[in-house]
Design a protein around this nucleic acid. Structure first.
Lengths: 225, 225, 225, 225
DNA sequence: AATGAATGAGCTTTCATTCAT
DNA sequence: GATGAATGAAAGCTCATTCAT
């Protein structure tokens, strides 16, 4: 990466401006000129801190996930019961959704922009950026919470890797779709129902989760390996 | 059946080419020239069928969701038990994931591209495209399945609108994240665990879902409105 | 090279404009915009015919030497006595100098521009352009004239390769310096003296050119190894 | 001797760096930044010594020719026979060529860069730099050698101005072309043949050089005015 | 109807020059 | 004096769109 030099705060200002512009316009339509204007620096100044538009994007992306990792790590470090942590995951997510408004939707959009960018980079085998790896780091932060929950006997003996993945990606999908239905959906109800579903499922009569005994339709045992 | 008019088939060819190019390159980097080449028509010809690049994208977007609606409608029209239909939702999703490979990832990418496009259109209040509305149509197709499940006593008396939303968007998120972990995740296991979670939750000891009686921690009743 | 397509005449017009601009301003200061203006085409049109500014320069360079080769070849093909051909070499050169004026000095300058460009390309080992080879082709056209002169007994038994090289490069140097002294030098006198010197040398008393007998100061034998 | 002031040595360092950079990259592609780096001074420092990039180039140019003048003057001041001086002219030239290698070709290139620059300045009537005048000074240093040679009866009664011009510019052209054929040409042979040609010409049977008697083909009298 | 040659607006990037320290 | 961070003018190049054929 570009070595840090000159004013670090100016560098941050540019990255922040870039996030706003890239969210609003996308990496392609968003121009260096507009980033410069947003950051209140000269167009040339940007190139003192970054080699290219693409580098700005990738640095912003790193910064973005770096912060995300720290945020989630902070949750994990809390000295609260496992079950509380699990609850916090939902709370964090939906609190975030409840707080965003027309002014900062760009934070929601930039995630999609980044994912799209990363998908294409991934597909073109350009290994410069590996979002999959970054995401796995995120999963790994959540995973111990699930693990503890199982150990403590609160959670079923579910594969914690898969569950973390499903939980995390589901919340991501909910947030994404929420964007489009934000005027029709109540975040609190969404949170309550999401927790209810993930924790208790939707079947009325809970069947045994003891796989060996499961013979019915929904049993995991009957699924293809 | 009336065969497609020559001009009609050419229109489809262009839209199809556009999907491939836009998926691969994005709406901005993807060029009219490359779409023309992919569709094997002249560059000028495209403007006989569409007013602008943006119109191509939006027509493609409509086509895309039109097909999606038909697909899901097809599921709904099947004469199978409600519970089977619910299962089919998972099966469709994960079968789709199991079939995509390096050659047709663009189908996964184009959804994100479209969502991103729609988010920005939405944010800029340009009402030309309303993906939220299209998605609600999709939800509405699934919703009766849930409704029937409740009526038949198979499912809990959960709010069917919210549940549909949560189910649909969760599966979307799972598919999105699956892209990045496709080399680390087994689709069949992912499907099995997803179904298990959504249907039975992850708590070991199922608590009462009778809201009126819920006073404990996880109860919906205790959540802030 | 770029395949010929579209209007060949337009391509020529661009190359011609490029020669004028590059001569006047150099390859770096000369802009695509000014070439476009000179050629009376749009800026974008140039990129329909050439991939880059550098390609324009190199195509112009090729065209330039292609024509030069044809010109000199034309001289060689004349059915005139050898000695006349030798004379023509001088005549061509100085006639050229006598005809250039403020309006077409660019033809003189472009040669230097090309040489400079080629020197740097050569130094950077970029083998795309090999002016040395092109020049050797030019020498090879002149060489037979010298060879015939020797065979016919008109010229001394001088190494025809080296003589050709010396003659050609000397005339080039004379033309180059002539540019700076054009207001002080009479082309006709310059021609006459040049011929006199090259043909008869400047020593008053001709010494033997029989190397074996040369013991004096100027003999080749006395030169440092 | 007074030691160079610190500032003076820095000025020289910049000019020297400029020569290297301008030779390698040309006046346009060569950047102030790279000159500063090569000179190991700050970018801003350069503007303490020179008003602009162009001024650097012109100062370097002056320095370059100043040194050249001194070199040639040194030759003239030698207390050796006229004929020896004439020989030295060739020796200097070809010794120079024999010594240059891949590491210092830039000294050869910078001459062309300067000439090109001067040609354009000249053409644009910008009188700031007059290379023609500088070259005439150079010629004037050589000229007396020829004059002495004629007086001493060693050389023919040739116009010494024209001869000096022809000799000097020819050697320049030879050096220029030598660059491109350096892998194919032996400098010692080139020197020997050059001397042979300039001193004795290439005609086998020397004709009279007495102009008044010349009526034949090669006579000056028969040349077009 | 179909085409692709032509175009200029608009983009990224470079770099000579300035100026506060 | 010496410096290098800051800058905007200017350049190469791309590409959506037009339009004559």
């Amino acid at each position: 990466m570009t070595p840090l030099k000159k004013s670090e705060s100016k560098r941050k200002r540019i990255l922040n401006a870039a996030m706003i512009i890239f969210a609003k316009e996308g990496i392609n339509k968003g121009t260096i000129a507009s980033i410069a204007q947003e950051a209140e620096v000269g167009k040339g100044t940007i190139y003192e801190y970054f080699k290219s538009k693409e580098e700005i994007f990738e640095e912003m992306l790193n910064e973005f996930f770096q912060n995300m990792l720290l945020d989630w790590q902070g949750l994990n470090d809390l000295e609260i019961p496992t079950i509380k942590k699990l609850e916090k995951i939902f709370e964090y997510t939906f609190e975030y959704l409840s707080l965003i408004d027309e002014q900062n939707f760009h934070q929601l959009i930039i995630i999609i922009e980044i994912m799209l960018y990363a998908m294409r980079k991934d597909l073109s085998k350009s290994t410069q950026i590996d979002l999959g790896k970054i995401l796995r780091k995120l999963y790994k932060i959540i995973e111990p919470i699930i693990g503890d929950g199982i150990k403590e006997g609160v959670l079923k003996e579910i594969d914690k890797e898969y569950f973390t993945f499903i939980l995390f990606s589901s919340l991501d999908g909910i947030a994404l779709h929420y964007y489009f239905q934000r005027n029709y959906i109540d975040v609190d109800k969404l949170k309550a129902y999401s927790m209810e579903i993930f924790l208790n499922g939707i079947l009325k009569n809970k069947r045994s989760t003891n796989k060996s005994k499961t013979t019915g339709f929904w049993g995991v045992g009957s699924l293809p390996k």
